[in-house]
C-alpha cells in the first residue's frame, strides 16, 4: 500500500469536511478498498474512515414504513436487525461474502462502489430504494449508472439507504466459485402496484432492471410467466466463469427461482 493519513470523524459533518482534503477517499468497511490499496490500484492521500460515525449506523423504520439503514451499517447488522421488517433484504445481507467480511463490510460501501457483481445494488434497485447522501436523496433508478459508476459526486457520502418494503421479495443467486460474489443473482420484489426485478453479476453495464420480466410478472406472478423470456447475452460479462450467453440464461433461471421461492 502507498501510505495515507487516516481521518476518523465521528459525525457526517466532520466526514464531509475531511473529504475536502486533497485526494481524500472515503472508506467504510474497507473489505473491497483495502485489497485494492494492497494491490496499489488506488493512492489516496487521506482515507476518511466512516466506521466511527454513529449517526450512520443502524436499522429503523421511517414514517412511510420504509426500512432505513445507515450507510455505515455492517451486513451482519442488517442481517440481524432488518429480519423483522424486510426478511428478503436481511437474507441478502446474510449471504454476502463470509461472516468476517459481513462484520466489517457496510451497505454504504457496497452501494457507493457499485461492483457489477455486488449483492446490495440488486437489493436497492429491486426494492426501488432511495439513496441518501450528505446533501441529497437519489432514487435507485437514477443512482446506478453502470459498472462502478454511480450518481455520486466527488466527495459525496452515502449516509443512508431507504427501502420501501414490498409485500414479498426474494434474492436468488448462484455463486462465482472463486470470488463467491454472485455469478448472477436476481432480486425480485412484489409490490401492490407491480413487480421489480433487478439483476446483478450479469451485465457489462452493472446492475439493471429486467423490464420484460417485471411486466410479465406484474400481470402474472408465477415462475411460468418468465419461463419464455430471454435476455441478450451479447452485452453481458463473459469471463473464465461463464459466457454472456450463459449469464443471460442464468438471469432467467434466477428470476424464475426467486419467483418460485416467493410462491
Amino acid at each position: 500500500m502507498y501510505n495515507f493519513d487516516v481521518e476518523r470523524p465521528s459525525t457526517i459533518q466532520d466526514a464531509v469536511k475531511a473529504m475536502g482534503r486533497e485526494e481524500a477517499q472515503p472508506m467504510s468497511g474497507g473489505q473491497t478498498l483495502i485489497p485494492t490499496l494492497k494491490a496499489r490500484l488506488a493512492a489516496p492521500s487521506v482515507l476518511v474512515s466512516l466506521t466511527g460515525i454513529d449517526e450512520m449506523k443502524g436499522v429503523c423504520l421511517d414514517d412511510e414504513g420504509r426500512v432505513c439503514i445507515g450507510g455505515a451499517t455492517t451486513h451482519a447488522t442488517v442481517a440481524r436487525e432488518a429480519e423483522a421488517h424486510y426478511p428478503a433484504l436481511a437474507s441478502l445481507a446474510a449471504r454476502i461474502g463470509d461472516p468476517a467480511v459481513r462484520n466489517r463490510g457496510t451497505i454504504g460501501g457496497s452501494i457507493a462502489n457499485n461492483d457489477p457483481s455486488a449483492c446490495y445494488p440488486a437489493g436497492a434497485l429491486g426494492s426501488g430504494a432511495t439513496i441518501v447522501t450528505n446533501n441529497r436523496e437519489i432514487a435507485a433508478d437514477d443512482y446506478f449508472q453502470g459498472m462502478f459508476e454511480t450518481a455520486l459526486e466527488e466527495g459525496e457520502i452515502v449516509t443512508e439507504v431507504k427501502f420501501p418494503v414490498p409485500t414479498a421479495a426474494h434474492y436468488e443467486k448462484i455463486l462465482q466459485p472463486a470470488s463467491r460474489f454472485p455469478l448472477v443473482a436476481a432480486f425480485v420484489a412484489k409490490f401492490s402496484d407491480g413487480v421489480r426485478v433487478a439483476i446483478t453479476g450479469a451485465s457489462n453495464d452493472g446492475v439493471f432492471r429486467w423490464a420484460e420480466a417485471e411486466q410479465a410478472l406484474s400481470s402474472n406472478f408465477s415462475p411460468d410467466a418468465v419461463a419464455g423470456l430471454s435476455l441478450d447475452g451479447s452485452n453481458m460479462i463473459s469471463d473464465l466463469h461463464g459466457t454472456g450467453a450463459y449469464r443471460a440464461h442464468l438471469c432467467g433461471v434466477m428470476t424464475k427461482r426467486a419467483v418460485a421461492a416467493i410462491g
Partner: peptide, 28 residues
C-alpha cells in the same frame, strides 16, 4: 491479499474480522 483465506481471523470487540483487511488505527 484479497481478503478470502481467513488465516488472519481475529475477534475485534467480540466479532470475527479479517485482521489483514482492517487498519490498525481502526482498532484503536
Amino acid at each position: 491479499d484479497t481478503s478470502q483465506c481467513g488465516a488472519c481471523v481475529v475477534h475485534v470487540n467480540g466479532e470475527a474480522v479479517k485482521a489483514c483487511t482492517m487498519l490498525a488505527v481502526e482498532a484503536d
